[in-house]
């Protein structure tokens, strides 16, 4: 199946790409949005002093 990639998705903050699969007639059969980001805040906030967490989590998104 023909695949069109939109990579990266632009003019937004954050990372993403879209895979669009076309059928034999050239119409969209299916499309998939992939979010390729992972940093692990869920883990690395653990064990930090609670008063420090407001100084860490703003870096999840600074927009």
């Amino acid at each position: 199946m023909e695949k069109i990639m939109i990579d990266p998705i632009t003019r937004l903050e954050g990372h993403g790409k879209i895979a669009i699969f076309l059928d034999d007639g050239g119409n969209v059969a299916e499309s998939y949005l992939q979010i390729p980001e992972f940093r692990g805040f869920e883990k690395f906030c653990q064990g930090r002093p609670v008063e420090e967490v407001p100084r860490i989590v703003p870096r999840i998104c600074g927009v």
Partner: peptide, 11 residues
């Protein structure tokens, strides 16, 4: 370009 970031640098 932004790699593993929060967007604050873009701002």
């Amino acid at each position: 370009y932004w790699a593993s970031s929060c967007g604050g640098c873009e701002i």
